[in-house]
């Protein structure tokens, strides 16, 4: 028992000799402040709930072009006005390119979307990417301008993986192929 007392006393006295009281307070303060900074570190951000699309591993993106505004990894992006599927931007591809290992369908459904930056209607081709299992991220189903099955060329519930070596649907792109005229003459 005496030995334990001596050991405890020795440790306490040693600690007191080496550290000032202010130094202890400063250390404790530093630990508290440092601890509060942990969630701000990049590692902590990666594991926190994602923003934007709400899917794991998908962070907000930008085209970097003020004339092409919005987040291509978000369903709100202007080019997706008639899309129905998983956004390739969230699946290893981009809004106009397929993820590696998939094949872009040459057969597509085509519509128009208004670009909020210039108010112009662009002709958008919703090419599906095919050949891998369905991506499962960023499901986006806006269907603006979609027509019923009786007009199959304007219906997006069809699997458009046609003309490709496999009909397995992976995700959808939205490629700009032209500019639409202002005239409203289409029935």
């Amino acid at each position: 028992m005496k030995e334990i007392d001596k050991l405890g006393e020795g440790l306490a006295r040693g600690l007191a000799r080496r550290n000032s009281r202010r130094g202890v307070l400063a250390t404790i303060g530093g630990l508290i402040t440092g601890g509060a900074m942990f969630p701000a570190l990049p590692v902590a951000r990666a594991s926190s709930p994602p923003g934007g699309s709400g899917y794991d591993g998908v962070t907000p993106q930008s085209t970097g072009d003020p004339m092409d505004p919005g987040d291509p990894a978000s369903c709100d992006y202007w080019r997706y006005c008639g899309i129905d599927g998983f956004l390739c931007s969230c699946c290893g591809g981009t809004a106009s390119a397929c993820p590696p290992g998939t094949e872009m369908s040459p057969i597509t459904w085509i519509g128009t979307c208004a670009n909020p930056a210039d108010g112009v209607n662009y002709i958008i081709s919703y090419n599906d990417c095919c050949g891998k299992p369905a991506c499962g991220r960023c499901l986006c189903n806006r269907n603006e301008g979609e027509r019923p099955m009786t007009r199959p060329q304007l219906n997006n519930d069809i699997n458009w993986c046609l003309g490709t070596s496999t009909a397995a649907y992976t995700c959808s792109t939205a490629v700009i192929i032209g500019v639409a005229l202002k005239e409203e003459g289409r029935g």
Binding site: I123, S125, Q153, G163, G178, A180, R186
Partner: peptide, 24 residues
Amino acid sequence: RAKMNWMLSCQGCHQADATGSANG
């Protein structure tokens, strides 16, 4: 306008160069 109508109503299946598609 004709080209736009081609894009919107034909090109999706017939393709941009009108070569069509196998079994389509």
